[in-house]
C-alpha cells in the first residue's frame, strides 16, 4: 500500500504550497487516474509519491507518505526506486543516455540494484517481453521513434519490478501512433494486476483503465471518487479537464434529447 495522508508540499523558496490536503491510497491491483489542468500539481504529486520530492529536488513536505507501512523519508536512497517506479513525459531525457543497445538500457536499473547477473538478464528479458519489444533488444535506443523509446523507458522501470507504478503523462510528448502503442502497453500492465497511478490529460486513456479518479485544482483535490462518478461530474470541465469522448457524447446526446444508449451501440 502506497499511502499519502494530508500531504502538503512546498517547493524550495516558494511562498505557496504546490500541493495541499492530498490524501491518496494506491493498493495492489488498483489503477488510479489523476487529472487536472496543467500546473495543477499532477507532476508534483507523482514526484512526492515517488519519494523524489523533497529528497532529491528539495522543498518541504508535511503530512505522511507511507510505503507498505514505512515512512518514505526513512528509506535509504536508491531503495525506493526498486519498489516505486516512475515514468516521465519525455522519453528522450528519461533514457540513461549512455547505453548503445535497448537491452543494456533496460538492464541498467537491475544492474544498479546489484542483483546476480542471471537475475539481471532474466528481469530484462521479462520486461522486454511484457512490453512486446524483444525485437528491439539490439537497437540503439537513441534511434527509435518516440513511442518505442517510451516503451524502452517503461521496460527499464518494469525491470526493477516495482510494486507501484507512477506514470506522469506518459503519452503527452508522443505522436498519436506512439501514444496508442504506449497506452496499449499500459492497459496490458493494468490488466495484469499492477498498482498504477496515471497522471494524464487524455481522459480517454484513463476511462479505459481506471477504477478511481482524482481531479486536482491548484494543488488541492477537487474531485475524488469512483471513475464513473468523476467522469459524469458536471464540474469536471470547470477544472480544465475534458471528460472522455464517450461520456461527452452521452452528455451532448442527452442535451439534444437523444437516448445515450443508442450512441453507446454506435461508439
Amino acid at each position: 500500500m502506497l499511502e499519502l495522508t494530508e500531504v502538503e508540499y512546498r517547493y524550495l523558496g516558494a511562498r505557496t504550497p504546490a500541493l495541499r490536503g492530498i490524501s491518496l491510497r494506491l493498493a495492489p491491483g488498483e489503477v488510479v487516474g489523476l487529472v487536472g489542468a496543467s500546473e495543477s500539481g499532477k507532476s508534483t504529486l507523482c514526484l512526492v509519491a515517488a519519494g523524489l520530492a523533497p529528497r532529491f529536488i528539495g522543498g518541504t513536505v508535511r503530512g505522511t507518505v507511507m510505503l507498505d507501512g514505512q515512512a518514505l523519508g526513512t528509506l535509504p536512497p536508491g531503495e525506493i526506486a526498486g519498489r516505486i517506479g516512475i515514468v516521465f513525459q519525455d522519453p528522450s531525457s528519461s533514457l540513461t543516455g549512455i547505453m548503445s543497445t535497448v537491452f543494456e538500457e533496460v538492464a541498467f536499473g537491475p544492474m544498479n540494484l546489484g542483483l546476480a547477473r542471471e537475475e539481471v538478464l532474466a528481469r530484462t528479458d521479462e520486461a522486454l517481453t511484457a512490453l512486446r519489444i524483444e525485437g528491439l533488444a539490439a537497437r540503439d535506443p537513441d534511434h527509435l521513434s518516440g513511442g518505442r523509446r517510451q516503451l524502452v523507458v517503461l521496460a527499464g522501470i518494469l525491470a526493477l519490478r516495482p510494486d507501484y507504478l507512477l506514470l506522469d503523462e506518459p503519452t503527452s510528448e508522443l505522436d498519436p501512433a506512439g501514444a496508442r502503442l504506449v497506452a496499449d502497453a499500459i492497459a496490458r500492465l493494468a490488466a495484469a494486476g499492477g498498482a498504477i497511478l496515471i497522471a494524464e490529460h487524455k481522459t480517454d486513456l484513463l476511462a479505459r483503465l481506471c477504477t478511481r479518479v482524482i481531479a486536482l485544482r491548484a494543488g488541492q483535490p477537487a474531485l475524488d471518487g469512483a471513475a464513473d462518478d468523476v467522469w459524469h461530474n458536471p464540474s469536471l470541465t470547470d477544472l480544465g479537464v475534458d471528460p472522455p469522448t464517450r461520456i461527452r457524447l452521452a452528455i451532448l446526446a442527452r442535451a439534444a434529447g437523444v437516448d445515450p444508449r443508442r450512441l453507446e451501440a454506435v461508439g
Binding site: 517547493y11 524550495l12 523558496g13 516558494a14 511562498r15 505557496t16 504546490a18 500546473e39 495543477s40 500539481g41 499532477k42 507532476s43 508534483t44 494543488g219
Partner: peptide, 8 residues
C-alpha cells in the same frame, strides 16, 4: 531577490 513560484 525572492525565489519565484514553482510550476508543477
Amino acid at each position: 531577490e525572492d525565489v519565484g513560484e514553482e510550476p508543477s
